[in-house]
Design a protein around this nucleic acid. Sequence first.
DNA 1: ACCTGAACACCGTTCAAGT
DNA 2: ACCTGAACACCGTTCAAGT
Lengths: 187, 187
Amino acid sequence: MASTTPPRRPRADARRNAERLLAAAETVFREHGVDAPLEHVARRAEVAIGTLYSHFPNRRALLGALLHERNEALFARGDQLGGEAAGDALVAWIRAAVEHAAAYQGLAGVIAAGVDDEASELHASCVRMAAIGEHLVARARDAGAISPDVRGTDVFALMNAAAWLLGHGNAEQADRLLNFAIAGMRR
Amino acid sequence: MASTTPPRRPRADARRNAERLLAAAETVFREHGVDAPLEHVARRAEVAIGTLYSHFPNRRALLGALLHERNEALFARGDQLGGEAAGDALVAWIRAAVEHAAAYQGLAGVIAAGVDDEASELHASCVRMAAIGEHLVARARDAGAISPDVRGTDVFALMNAAAWLLGHGNAEQADRLLNFAIAGMRR
DNA sequence: ACCTGAACACCGTTCAAGT
DNA sequence: ACCTGAACACCGTTCAAGT
């Protein structure tokens, strides 16, 4: 029994509103972080607050939709790095992931929470990020580029910590911490 | 011209309320982080919300008063470490500072912001923490225990990042990151 | 099918009125 | 000198009423 309804193309105004909301969220989150008032997002998109909630039932759903394209680009980069020199690939991945997780203030916290929370709209993408890191760690370990003690979760944690730092200080400092931690992971 | 008024001993009920508020804040912040509603703190202390504000004009003032004793203990530990073996002292300091900054969820962010914000009630203590780190880094560097590239700010950043991680995951992961970063700082 | 905005709850912050 | 709690502003979230 096919309990799934066939996909219907959304009404034109609905589609337009969703796009306006995403564009508004992009601006507002970028300027004020992921905890910015959703009312501000709705105002900027020039729709009523109820419209925002009808498209995105909660803040994470909005954030998830907003990050979708960005996520795909990151995953593609991760897959591509799977074909490059193991040690360099891992470092490049960490830098790319940090940049991603620092797109908006507070995003690193949502990502860090998202891996453990299956109900989070960001869960799947967090798991994917963790899996890519895990894979690149295994490769780098096998190639002898990093210590056998390093786990995939170490890379996930490092990347979130560095992204958090990036949102709470200057970019240079986050980069320096990254470099020390990476140096400590090498054998 | 002495524009400072002589210190007067507070009324007994006022002193008692301040203590009740601090005890309540300790519990509430520990359970729900530093962003927990101040109304909950007042309720738990069994005083009106206005009383909380009359004693502590804002959240940071309350937090600053709450951390005062804890800060003194940390600084004393820092001074004491100034007399121990340079490399071990630095590592011990980092661990002590991380534990401090992870006392409540969200505290690491307040501390990270506090060094740069002179208006923050936590500014002085943040500067002191940074200074102690700076001193221990210089000693460890002179002793050849760490790379000459390491700056005091690196330790401050690492400590906040690890404390943040501690609030967003398991303690073991924060410790692992700490170990990798410290390993990367050694020469 | 989708949009609107009023409605309710919750919290930050101030301040006039009490004791 | 200090405490109280009402008052106002702001925001999250829902939902009856419109188109």
